[in-house]
Structures are given as structure tokens and as C-alpha cells.
Design a protein around this nucleic acid. Structure first.
Lengths: 224, 224
DNA sequence: CAGTGTGAAGTTGTTCACAGCA
DNA sequence: TGCTGTGAACAACTTCACACTG
């Protein structure tokens, strides 16, 4: 019953590709022209085979004994991920996180261009952060007709996430990046990517506690 | 070679538990006292068995025909996740995302309490956001000796992430929430949780493109 | 050799099937 | 009957083993 979409590319791979991309860009800046999967694996602490398979998924290929052409792979990855095409998005919910994302540089380099922001709170409408106007949610349907945008970034309070999401969908949004801890229900024709900060806090705390437990336990053969 | 930590609790479960927690809190506010896994599954679009197994991981149990006691499970989950104990953390890198997290309400309710923030840029030191002072990174080692904090939130530019991470570790940090797209190397005695916004953008764009492909393809038997 | 590429094996997480229970 | 709880079947992802290449 889980949101299984029959994506050709496994999600774990999709998460690693931007990591490779950043690493390759750094490597190129340092003057490197080619790189091997084992070398990358050492730096990024990943299995070399994993890297080879991931890159193959993005249809990048290398040459035995030589490795991968960095420029070539960067281009291939950017194309594959859609990072070199401008995907216009709107942001809904100009709270703390929302405004941070508005002023986040680099999304532009990663394919996302936020062109408008919305909020219900009149308090927040005055602010313009970095050139992007924050307008009242009432204007959303009207503006959406003009803009023809398919991506929305949802950073409202979780209590209204579902309600807002439904509005987004009814106005033609086809992909929602849900940064609230609430889970939203949308038609199967709409893509949702959940990114909850709290989930990451949970994992971090768990890892920490686990390490502490090992430390305390009698048989901690950790290499301190 | 991947960062395999032999955690007793699978990471996917750990990500879902906070989702349950929020949902249960909402349900309790609406006056509900008990809830069944199938009911939750319907709302959250998850397999009921999944939920039962996840809750069992957190050592919460229910009664057949009745379901789970909401208050009880909330308490169990909060305890299990460490959300009801105050885990003090420092934030390093007061850029856009960093300052957003500083003023993010709710981390307190999720076990994280940011008690200090650091940055290298003198420009940013003046600001105090929400009561938390942003002080110069030079003061970090000194302050860490006093504070005895084990968690750091890393929100620097990726180019200095590794360098800063090494400083954190040398000052006794035991867990790093890495919100930069760079991957950092730390001793195996230190926990790292990577949360890259770009990875999520990549997944969202891929899902969107995939849906568009289905739409265009001749045999789209999607229920619109 | 030292790397890419790939099929097979292994591991982990999810879904199914059903026993137990009120 | 409708739920929890759990062992078994299944699916997805990772790691291993090795053929292939310059």
C-alpha cells in the first residue's frame, strides 16, 4: 500500500547521484580530468561497485584502467537529474523554513527555480527576502493560471498541510515537495516527496544513543 | 564499505516513527483514545502490518479488536525516539538554512535544543535570531569545554564542511547532522546523519518526469 | 594488473498469510 | 468478526565474484 511508484531508477541511487555530482564538480575545480570509481569510493565512503552501477543508471560510462571523464559525467548527471533545465516552482508557507529556502542559493544550480511564494499570514506578505514576492494565498489560483507551474514546495504548518495540498492539486500542481511532518493524500497523478526534518533528528539521536551504548558495553572493540 | 551501523532499529522504521507520533498527537487532540493500525494505515497510506511491526520495534503494543492506546503509544514513541529528553546541540554555520533551523520552533518538542550557534563570518555574528547568540567559530573549542555537548548541526557551505567537521570532532562532538551536500569523513565513534536538500530535489524531479512520461505514453491506465 | 561492467549471492526491508484473541 | 502479532514469501538494494579491456 506504500506509495510504490515503478520508477526505473531506485531511490537510493537517486539520492547518491547529487553527491557524486558535487564531488565531481569539486574534483574538476582542482584540475582533475578523469576519476575512477574506487577513488571516489574512498572519498565518499561508498562501495566502488555501487558507484559504477549508479553511474550506469544515469547512462554514464567510463573506460577500464582510466576511469570516467569528469566533465562528461557532470554533464550526463546534470542532464539526467534535470539539474540543468530550469524547473519553476512555487513555495507555499513562508515561515522560517520557507523563507530560508527562498533565500537558499544553489537551488538554481540544482534545477529548481522558485518564482513565487505564498502565505496566509498578512504579517509575512510585506517581506520580499531575495527578490521573490510573498503574496497572499488567495491569489494562488489566479496566479497559477498565468504561471503554469507544476512544482510546489510545501512549508506550511503541518496542521494545514493537507488542506493546502488539496488546493495546490486543484490548481494544477503536479509535484509537491512536502517539508512538513504531516503526510498528505493526493491523487496518484501527483508526485509527492516527503522531507521531514524530524525524521532526521530521530535517526541522528538513535545513532548517537547506539554509539553510546557500544561505548558503555563491556565488549567495545571500537578503534577509538 | 557503506556506513553500515548495526543499529537494532532499521532506518526506514526510524523515519516513520515520527510520522506516527505526529499523527497520534493530532488524533488525541481530536479526542480519540485508541486507534488501530488499519485506520492509521488508511490515513498515512502505509501497510497496516508495517505499522504494527514499527510500533513493536519501539516496544509499543496494542490489544486485538481494540487497537493501541494513543496516550500510551505517544509516550512510548517519545521515550523511544529520545524526543522527551532534552538533547542539547550546537549549530555551526549561520547561513540561510542555519538561521532557519535556529528559529525553527518545534525542535524543542522533538528532543533537540539548540543552545549555541557559530559562524566564521563576522557579518553574521551580530544577529541573535531567537535568543540564541551566534558567536565566532574561534570561540568554539573554548565554549565546548564548558558546555559538554555531543550533537552538532552542520549548515556551513559544503566547501568547508570537512574542515569544520574535523574541528567539531576534535572538540568532542559525537553526532553530526550534516545538512551540507558534501560527505564528511569522521572516526567511526562519531555518528553522522546526512540530509541533503538536493537529494530530495533530485527525487522529486525524477518522480515528476516519470509521471509525465506515463501521461504521455500510449497505455496510461491511470485513474486520473 | 587496475579498472569497468554485470550476473549471482547475500542482506535488508516489505508484504502476505495465518494463528491467537476478545 | 476484526484486530494484533509473527513467521514465511517476496522484493529491493547492496556486495561479491569474475569476465572483459587497454
Amino acid at each position: 500500500m506504500s506509495n510504490k511508484n515503478p520508477s526505473a531508477v531506485p531511490e537510493p541511487t537517486l539520492k547518491r547521484l547529487p553527491v557524486y555530482l558535487r564531488y565531481l564538480k569539486k574534483a574538476r575545480e582542482q584540475g582533475l580530468l578523469t576519476i575512477t570509481a574506487p577513488a571516489m569510493g574512498r572519498e565518499l565512503q561508498l562501495d566502488p561497485t555501487q558507484i559504477v552501477k549508479d553511474l550506469a543508471m544515469a547512462s554514464a560510462s567510463g573506460r577500464p584502467r582510466v576511469g570516467y571523464g569528469i566533465d562528461e559525467v557532470i554533464h550526463t548527471l546534470e542532464h539526467f537529474l534535470g539539474f540543468n533545465t530550469e524547473n519553476e516552482a512555487v513555495l507555499v508557507g513562508a515561515g522560517n523554513l520557507g523563507r530560508a529556502l527562498l533565500s537558499y542559493p544553489g537551488f538554481q544550480n540544482y534545477g529548481l527555480k522558485i518564482v513565487a511564494a505564498f502565505d496566509n499570514d498578512p504579517e509575512k506578505l510585506a517581506r520580499t527576502s531575495t527578490g521573490i514576492n510573498i503574496v497572499h494565498m488567495d491569489k494562488f489560483p489566479e496566479l497559477m493560471k498565468k504561471l503554469k507551474i507544476s512544482i510546489a514546495i510545501l512549508t506550511t504548518p503541518p496542521s494545514v498541510a493537507q488542506e493546502v495540498a488539496s488546493v495546490l492539486v486543484s490548481c494544477g500542481i503536479k509535484a509537491i515537495w512536502n517539508l512538513t511532518p504531516a503526510r498528505i493524500s493526493v491523487p496518484s497523478t501527483v508526485a509527492v516527496q516527503n522531507t521531514s526534518m524530524y525524521a532526521n533528528v530521530a535517526i541522528l539521536l538513535n545513532k548517537l544513543r547506539h554509539l553510546e551504548d557500544i561505548e558503555k558495553s563491556p565488549d567495545h572493540r571500537e578503534s577509538t
